[in-house]
Amino acid sequence: MSADTAAATSFSARIREASWSRHQGLDPSAEATREPGLFDRLFDGTLSVDDYTRWHAQQFFVYEAIEAAGDRLADDPVARPFVFAELARRHSIEADLRFLMGPKWRSGAEPLPATRAYVDRITEAAAEPAGYVAHAYTRYLGDLSGGQAFGKAARRNYGFDGEGASFYDFTGIGSPKAFKAEYRSRLDAIDLDEDAKARLVDEVLLAYDHNGAVLSELGANLGRNPFEPKVVAAICHHMNHDHAADTLVICRGAGGRPEAHAARMTGFDGDGADFAASVGDEEVPLRVDWARPLTERAEVRPEIVRLFTESKEQLGG
């Protein structure tokens, strides 16, 4: 876009025009496989509540990062006009996840690699106020627009009444249309030079790309985990709080990290278990396969016992 064109177009319109193609192709799994993606399945009623829950859990990490940046920048002159208490989503997501996964939900929620990359980018970009604005705009205005259709579909498909889809309820905003208009007017008045505005637009596009990568990773695993998220959360919590020493033995032995000094179980599916081992100053993800595919909760404990026993023997204990 030329400087003359940029000057003649409102900044909010420039962002919308630049990001329109990203917005249209936001569910990349549908395009890549020519099969229905996560959004399609939500709307046609074929997305399981378990996969909906896994998607919801990934969003927690994204909003945790955005809202931490918003808290930090609440008094910054550039960011302050875009920090709205009524937009905050983290507490709603937490309430939804407690409802969907039980009180131990946090033990069963772990960012996917794509989500971790997204969160890292938010944290890096939000070192500058314009970076925060780019990510906040992309998520929150999306929630007030297409996100409302997601909420309606979730309530229709799963029978939610409040919790489960409270993430999509903006009770502090009387008119989403009027609120979005005010938000865009603030974008148009943002105190940034043209170079900084161009970087903000680029960051919006990057936010779309990261969101698409998360959806793609989720879409590639739809229907593959036979265990309900609440079961995963309960067993991970039990291992991490009641059998932390055993978890460390498994990571040192079967996980191949004898130098680990701490460990936690982060999830599992029918093929194996996931762990995070503390090695030096970093946490390393580990995957340990089951001896055979599992489909029932009662099968998990014997496999964990086997892994612990074999790991203990391997370590000479």
Rank of each mutant, 00 (worst) to 15 (best):
P77L: 04
A165S: 03
A18V: 09
D71K: 08
A262R: 01
T9Y: 09
E259F: 02
V231F: 05
P229N: 15
A233D: 11
L222R: 06
A181I: 14
R89A: 01
A220M: 06
S12R: 07
G146V: 05
S185W: 00
E203P: 07
I122K: 07
D96S: 00
A30V: 08
E31H: 15
W20S: 12
Y208N: 14
H56Q: 09
A277T: 07
G37L: 00
T295C: 14
H23I: 08
S216Q: 14
D281S: 11
N240Q: 14
V300Q: 13
C236A: 12
F82H: 07
A95T: 08
Y118A: 11
G172Y: 01
A260H: 08
A262D: 07
L286T: 00
P129T: 08
A263L: 03
P302E: 15
Y52W: 14
G142K: 08
Y183I: 05
E303P: 01
I93T: 01
A207E: 02
G108F: 02
G270P: 03
A262P: 02
H238N: 15
T123P: 04
L206R: 10
G147N: 04
P229D: 14
S10D: 12
D271S: 15
P176H: 13
A244Q: 03
G280T: 07
K197V: 08
A95G: 06
P28E: 14
L100V: 02
H23L: 09
F84Y: 14
A233V: 04
E17K: 10
D161L: 11
L112R: 02
D27K: 00
A65T: 01
A245L: 11
G70C: 05
S2K: 14
L141G: 05
A57G: 15
I250C: 07
D50W: 09
F227H: 10
A134Y: 06
Q24W: 06
I93Y: 01
R155E: 10
P81C: 12
T123N: 09
A117D: 05
F150Y: 13
R16M: 09
H238C: 13
A8G: 06
D169Q: 04
R14E: 13
L307K: 01
F179S: 05
D246C: 10
S185G: 11
A32C: 06
